[in-house]
Amino acid sequence: MEILIPALLTIITAATPLLFAALGELVTEKSGVLNLGIEGMMVMGAIIGFVTVHYTGSATLAILASLMAGALMSAIFAVLVLQFHASQVPTGLALTIFGIGLSALLGQSMIGIAYEGLPIISIPLLSSIPVVGELLFKHDILVFLSILMVFAVMWFLYRSRAGLILRAVGDSHDAAHAMGYSVIKIRFLAILFGGAMAGVGGAYLSLAYSPLWVEQMTAGRGWIALALVVFATWRPGRVLLGAYLFGGITILQLHAQALGIGIPSQVMSMLPYLATVVVLVIISSDQARIKLNSPASLGKAFHPSR
């Protein structure tokens, strides 16, 4: 128990940023757009959140600022892809390169500054249940919010009219266009949502997971989030499962050292990346399943004149 509870708690903290980013990307991809710029949006969310909390002291403002930063970054992507008909893959890559560069520039004066971390919210009564209370009801606001978002996205995609339209746009933009829906507008909103979620995921890294600023502190999590969407075969519930699975792998490296296992730290650090590859291989090898679940218009350009 003494090791188990902290271990499970670290899984939750490691999973939360992935969960935000992957949920956002899921909605973007459901609308038929592949945004490879998650890493760039996350890292911008991380630095903007950290700068905001440093100057204002308000965690709420910091989270909102990260959300805005992610959304603004994704707006660049949206304009290029939707208005300028730029191809989605290179535009996403550009977003990542730009985000990493700009965040490093903005973060120059933030290196070496620490922040005490997001305040922990204990839900009255429930949090005093032994073990379960500590695991489920004593977290910072973003952990609660991330779980809430899973259900919100589920409800939106499968229970709301707007979600149905969004999925229609993602599966056949021409049909949706013919029915009178504004493909461009719907995709713009879906991209903005993806950006905002990636921004918040980034904020979690710099405000809670390791509350300080390090250049490129996202360390590939944006890409892992992309893989998670494939792993989840575009289902929000499975994104939750996948994020916690990856959280588990990430913390192996922390606890293997504590347990005195003689594996070099570099090898342990490789695990999340190797696991991503393994998971992709397992899921993708079933081509029929991928085809059945992926949005049919994913990655394709839309020209309303046709």
């Binding site: 660049i76 290029l80 300028f84 008909h85 730029a86 191809s87 290179p90 535009t91 890559l93 550009a94 977003l95 390169i97 730009f98 985000g99 990493i100 560069g101 700009l102 490093a104 520039l105 120059q108 250049e215």
Partner: peptide
């Protein structure tokens, strides 16, 4: 800061992708 280089490189690719619209339009 050296990071300016990364910003320049990202901007260059953004502007290129935007300018490329003029190839087809």
């Amino acid at each position: 800061p050296v990071a300016v280089t990364g910003v320049f490189q990202g901007l260059l690719l953004f502007f290129l992708l935007a300018s490329d619209v003029l190839i087809h339009y």
